[in-house]
């Protein structure tokens, strides 16, 4: 049981990273970034390729994939967000959906539709803490996920960039009046969000041992459900819900059957939407935007 809880925690922490990326963009810009799952896929894919093709050590590959995904976020802003009319709320969501589809097709055409597999050499040894079996990879994944989330929390609450993001989230006009370059904040929001997704992609890749080009529409889109479960725009909500879904999935696959695991996030989503539409931890959207 403890073993399953730990495994669930590890799985959940990567879910949290994905959900936090959705939440960041939604919280600051009020749009669904439907290309986020593909940023996550790109990160995982590039991470594996860097290790396989260039023999880069894992930390460098992780860094490289994170930066590459961050650049993807920059492109996403320039191509899909900035030129699009925001007055029609669906427009940016649809343009990001299109961007994601293009990315996925691009990867399939360039690298084929088969999953990319991490070299076995990377899958380091396991060890025991008391009765619990933990792999080094899992520990690494958990530590990195936690570090990234703490870093983001610090950024949002303690730095000037974070404060200007929160100001932009509450009202773009007021932020501009205070001298905040909202375009710059927007770019950085997309870049940070995508970079987190890229890192999550590598971490999931390490866990699964492989990344499929279609993972963006399976695990990636699950992050969207997790964000809504936690409460739209609520970063800490997304974090906790990610862990929660991870643990529930693990318990389900062990005690009910692995094929039911993927049902968890969506079932929870429906329950939350019916019983508590503002999300488990409440929504932080500012409705009275002027």
């Amino acid at each position: 049981m403890i073993q399953q809880l730990i495994n669930g925690l590890l799985l959940g922490s990567t879910y949290s990273l994905i959900a936090i990326g959705y939440t960041l963009v939604f919280g600051v810009l009020k749009i669904m970034n439907l290309a986020h799952g593909e940023m996550f896929m790109i990160g995982g894919f590039l991470g594996i390729l860097m290790v396989k093709l260039w023999n880069l050590p894992l930390p460098l590959a992780l860094l490289g994939a994170t930066i590459a995904a961050g650049l993807g976020g920059l492109l996403l802003d320039l191509v899909c967000y900035r030129p699009v009319k925001k007055t029609y709320f669906l427009a940016p969501a649809l343009s990001t959906l299109g961007f994601g589809i293009v990315l996925k097709d691009l990867v399939v055409n360039l690298a084929g539709s088969e999953p990319q597999v991490f070299p076995a050499a990377l899958l380091m040894g396991d060890f025991k803490i008391g009765p619990v079996l933990v792999s080094s990879i899992q520990l690494l994944v958990l530590a990195l996920a936690l570090a990234l989330m703490l870093g983001l929390d610090w950024l949002i609450n303690k730095t000037e960039l974070g404060r200007s993001m929160r100001a932009t989230a509450e009202s773009e006009t007021t932020a501009k009046i205070l001298g905040i370059n909202v375009n710059r904040v927007t770019i950085l929001t997309f870049v940070i969000s995508a970079a987190l997704a890229g890192a999550a992609g590598v971490l999931i890749g390490l866990r699964l041992g492989k990344i499929s080009p279609f993972i963006g529409s399976t695990i990636g889109i699950k992050g969207l459900a997790i964000m809504i479960i936690g409460g739209l725009g609520n970063l800490r909500g997304a974090f906790v819900s990610g862990i929660l879904v991870g643990i529930l999935e693990l318990l389900t696959s062990v005690y009910v059957g692995a094929i039911y695991a993927d049902v968890i996030a969506w079932t929870l989503l429906i329950i939350v939407l019916v019983m508590r539409p503002q999300g488990l931890f409440g929504s932080k959207i500012n409705v009275d935007r002027v």
Binding site: T159, R163, R166, A167, T173, L178, N286
Partner: peptide, 29 residues
């Protein structure tokens, strides 16, 4: 300032003033 007050309700008094100081220090601290 605005006729219909436009503060950031979820920021503390101190954070509000820090946002106001924005242009006096650009970049990360």
């Amino acid at each position: 300032t605005f006729q219909n007050i436009r503060l950031f309700p979820n920021m503390t008094v101190e954070e509000t003033l820090r946002v106001g100081q924005y242009k006096n220090h650009t970049g990360l601290n």
